[in-house]
Design a protein around this nucleic acid. Sequence first.
DNA 1: CTGTATCCTCGTTGATACTG
DNA 2: CAGTATCAACGAGGATACAG
Lengths: 128, 128
Amino acid sequence: MDVTVSDPGAFQHVTMQCRKVSAILSRVGDKWTVLVVMLLGGGPRRFNDIKRQVDGISQRMLTLTLRGLERDGLVRRTVTPTIPPRVDYELTPMGFSLLEPVQGLGAWAQAHIPAIEAARAAFDAKAV
Amino acid sequence: MDVTVSDPGAFQHVTMQCRKVSAILSRVGDKWTVLVVMLLGGGPRRFNDIKRQVDGISQRMLTLTLRGLERDGLVRRTVTPTIPPRVDYELTPMGFSLLEPVQGLGAWAQAHIPAIEAARAAFDAKAV
DNA sequence: CTGTATCCTCGTTGATACTG
DNA sequence: CAGTATCAACGAGGATACAG
C-alpha cells in the first residue's frame, strides 16, 4: 500500500479515517473476537461448540461477540428451527478476508514473544 | 507461516501460545497504542509533540501507553536532562517491525469500512 | 516540559437465573 | 440447545492538581 508512515504530515488529514480504522482495530484487539474468528476460520461451528473450544468465555460474552461479528458482516448466523434449536455460525467472505492480516499480526506476535518477554524482564529488573 | 487455519485441530495444542498471542494482540487493539506507534513510525517525537498530535489523549494515558511500549521493547525513551527536561521517544527495530503487520490490518480495515458500515446499517435496520 | 498522584465515573465483564 | 435478563464487581480511563 502507499500508506507511507515516513510522512508525518500524513496524519493531519486522515484523522477522521484513523478514528474509524482505530475503531475496527479495537475489535481485533477484543478479548474474544479474534479467537472466535480464528476458530471459525476452520469452518462453521455451532454455538456450544464455540463455547467449549474458546475456553473461558461466558455464554453472555460469546453471544455479544457473535452479535458484533454478525452485525459487521463478518459472520453469518444460520438458524435451523428444530427442537432443540440449532444455530450455525460461519465466516462470510469478508470474514475470511480478515483472516489474512490477522494471521500476519498473529505471526508477528508469536515470533516476538521471546523478545518481548525478555524486554519486560529487563525493564522490570531496572525498575526494582 | 504454517499456521494453517483450515485445520480445526490446530487449536487444541496451541492454546497456551494463543493466550500469549492474544495478550499481545490486545495491545494492538488498545485505544491509543497503535496511534502512537504509527506516529512514531514517522520518526522520534517528544512527549508533548505526541500529546498534541494524538488528539484526545490525556497526559496520564500517554504516559501509560509509552511506558507499556517501552517495557515491551517497542519504544526507546531518551532523556536529555536539561531545564526544562527533554524526552524523546522513538521506535526500536522491533517497534518498526510491528509497523508492517499493523499496516496490513489497517489497510484491511480502511478497505472494508464501507462494507462494514453497510452491514451494520442492514443489521440495525432488521433489528428495528 | 515531563511526568506523578488522587479521585471519581462509566463501561465492560462475569455470575446467575430464567425462557423458548 | 441457544439464548435473554438482571445484577454486582472490577478496572480502564478522564479530570485535576501537584512535583522535579
